[in-house]
């Protein structure tokens, strides 16, 4: 008996010690994301059995695809040591213009829904590229602080979207738009998830396997060294913002298809959520560090938390509080991680 107690007394601290050192290693290698993801899934599954059903996970996957897409855009700005506060209003402006163009083309020829859809999506992408170019040029050429530049653009874009739409939802898009881009599910996978997967593959390829992607990281890591190495830093910086806004525009198009109208107040929570997703995913605010695969998981995690809170009937006002706390905690934990990594180095 006493032997058994002794074994237990030895075993328990030993196990705890091993678990904590394992957690420490996972934390140092991958940041806080793997840990909080597991905690959230286990926690919600215990609190609400419906959480882990196929139907619910299907819903989370579809709901997260919008945030996954825009977070990959946001990631690019953090990689070059910037930020994009204007992504929500970019999506809103894209939404309004996509709806306007589609409705106009469709009204001109009611038998050409696909022409309308193509024109609308083309317009949305063009707006994304233009917004990104303005952000990028303001930041890279005129040296406006990224936060200030994009907050200014937030106000401008939001103002344009509200002016164009008159503050009302815009109707008149072809019904095929929603059918295909929101509700179709080839091979049982929702269309927005397919699109998010496509954006992920392109981002993964560009960031990890092209000279351009490597230079984006280099630029964020040390802009002076990059310039001295002959990299055209301004061009790369502008391109990072253009890519960001184009990707965000893709998110805007998908969301518009989902809600079925052009909305000037679309996606207002995306700025906070995307920054939270990206920071939790271990993308550094100081540039040059971050993996696109983790960003996908980070955005999935943020959506998962929202979904879990919905299932637990947490009121949406209080969800805002949770999201804010999450963002701040993610940054704090990131700082702790950097300190711990430096200690490991010193050892």
């Amino acid at each position: 008996m006493s032997e058994r107690i002794a074994v237990e007394q030895k075993f328990l601290p030993d196990l705890l010690g091993r678990l904590s050192s394992l957690a420490r290693r996972i934390f140092l290698a991958g940041g806080i994301l793997p840990i909080v993801l597991v905690v959230a899934i286990v926690g919600f599954a215990i609190a609400e059995p419906r959480f882990l059903t196929y139907n619910n996970l299907f819903n989370v996957a579809r709901a997260s695809s919008f945030l996954v897409v825009v977070s990959m855009g946001q990631m690019l700005t953090l990689l070059v040591r910037g930020i994009d506060m204007s992504i929500g209003s970019t999506e809103a402006l894209v939404s309004v213009c996509v709806a306007l163009v589609m409705a106009t083309v469709l009204a001109g020829d009611p038998n050409a829904p696909w022409l309308a859809i193509a024109a609308g999506i083309g317009a949305g992408m063009a707006i994304g590229a233009a917004v990104g170019a303005i952000n990028g040029i303001g930041i890279a050429v005129f040296n406006v602080n990224p936060f200030i530049m994009t907050v200014g653009m937030l106000s401008i874009l939001s103002g344009i979207a509200l002016t164009v739409s008159g503050g009302m939802p815009m109707y008149g898009m072809p019904k095929q738009f929603g059918e295909v881009f929101a509700y179709a599910a080839p091979l049982g996978i929702p269309a927005p998830v397919w699109v998010a997967g496509g954006v992920f593959l392109i981002m993964y390829y560009i960031l990890n396997w092209t000279p351009f992607g490597r230079r984006i990281y280099a630029l964020g890591g040390n802009i002076v060294a990059s310039r001295l190495a002959g990299i055209s830093t301004r061009l790369h910086m502008v391109m990072a913002y253009v890519m960001c806004s184009v990707i965000v525009a893709v998110g805007g198009v998908l969301l518009t298809a989902r809600v079925g109208t052009g909305e000037a107040t679309l996606a207002s929570t995306h700025v906070l959520e995307s920054i939270t997703a990206v920071v939790i995913a271990g993308v550094s605010f100081f540039g040059g560090i971050g993996r696109v695969g983790n960003v996908v998981l980070g955005a999935f995690f943020v959506t998962l938390v929202t979904n879990g809170m919905n299932l637990l009937r947490v009121p949406s006002y209080q969800q805002l509080i949770v999201l804010g706390v999450l963002l701040i905690l993610a940054v704090v934990v990131d700082q702790v991680r950097i300190k711990m990594m430096q200690q490991v180095r010193a050892e």
Partner: peptide, 19 residues
């Protein structure tokens, strides 16, 4: 300042801008 990107490893730095 050596012109190194701190968060890059050795080959990434050696081939910086000349990938």
């Amino acid at each position: 300042n050596l012109g190194l990107v701190d968060c890059f490893d050795v080959p990434q730095n050696v081939f910086l801008g000349r990938e």
